[in-house]
Design a protein around this nucleic acid. Structure first.
Lengths: 197, 197
DNA sequence: CGAATAAGGTAAGTAATACTTACTCACAAT
DNA sequence: ATTGTGAGTAAGTATTACTTACCTTATTCG
């Protein structure tokens, strides 16, 4: 090789930064390539040197954000011992991360899902890994008797993830504030103890 | 007025049908106006006689589907007496409707949310009404003592709606089959009785 | 009746958009 | 010296969503 292995040229970084910035204000489709280039102070053509297309740019930005999200959560989980505590941490930390990083949330919960090629991207691989972690925790919880034996692990995961995501939508879409503590303990209460008297 | 109040000309219907058909195969953004016109056998210009823009077409198609969805569910709820039974019917019927009507589901769960002007559309008004109905049921359930008094109605609603929506995503995105009975009783079990032993 | 008017529909535009192609320039390694 | 490559540019192009001006039919009312 000629050049050193150093990669991630300034142009690429500038483009991703500019795109993130624009995502904070508007939705994916109303961001134009011209706008990205102008904000990043590069030419439009350069975008296509580093990214296959506009969507690929979206996925790669998501990838970066998701990496932080995942490592943060995994560190926290490691500190907990019981299954229920681990799941509570997942609920709390997810809400916290979504609330703290609106661009990440917007991309993951609103923008990427409607296009099939996301599900072949690297970002989606991380989503699956994260989902797998949750499933493992649940299965272990059933084994150890912490959770009811008749619990369907996949469904419990659906309920937890669905509740988390749904809880964040208001904050993401309308910019409404989110009571992380209240909502996370509320979700945990219902999921673990049930709402019926 | 000169013409009678009769409205809904054949062109308009053909356009909506064609659009629905295309939505079954691909996502909103990869459907072009040229394609819609060709499939509907009308000229491109006619689309803009009946719809403000492409998004407006999306919202109006959603509106039609949502109307069916809502009346169907409301009829079913009326047959149930207890709060818990009503909520179970909501869970089951929602899953059933989503599974039976993929175009509706795709539009509502994946396509409209990322654009702010959806939330000013008539279709969104129906969503709010539906959400209000659920909240009313929950609040009544707490009053009558069917549900635990410490339950937060808004959070219980989030958990239920989130679980339903999350459960349908696989089916919608990947076309995976959905075990409506199993999933709906599974969700109800967790939400009402809790997963913890 | 007759003519004004509006509804249903068309044809031919237009500006803007995502993406391409062909080209510099700098510089590191042979 | 020269060769090859990474970083970046400038000037396209086809396609897209949306407009404008027009045509045709048919109803309604003076």
């Amino acid at each position: 090789m000629k050049h050193k292995g150093k990669t991630n040229p300034p142009g690429r970084i500038k483009i991703m930064k500019a795109f993130s910035l624009l995502m904070a204000e508007k939705d994916f489709h109303s961001i134009t390539t011209a706008e990205i280039a102008r904000t990043a102070q590069v030419t439009e053509g350069l975008i296509y040197k580093y990214f296959k297309d506009k969507k690929d740019l979206l996925y790669q930005v998501l990838n970066d954000h998701f990496f932080e999200f995942q490592t943060h959560i995994e560190n926290r989980i490691a500190n907990e011992k019981t299954c229920v505590e681990k799941l509570k941490v997942i609920i709390f930390s997810s809400l916290e991360s979504y609330a703290a990083n609106r661009i990440f949330s917007k991309i993951l919960l609103l923008e990427v899902r409607n296009s099939l090629d996301f599900f072949e991207s690297g970002a989606y691989e991380m989503v699956r890994e994260y989902a797998r972690t949750i499933l493992d925790i649940i299965e272990k919880g059933i084994e150890t008797g912490e959770l009811k034996p008749e619990t369907d692990p996949h469904i419990l995961r659906k309920v937890i993830l669905g509740a988390i995501e749904h809880a964040c939508l208001g904050e993401i879409i309308f910019g409404r504030p989110l009571d992380i503590d209240g909502v996370s303990t509320g979700i945990a209460n219902i999921v673990f103890n049930g709402a019926k008297r």
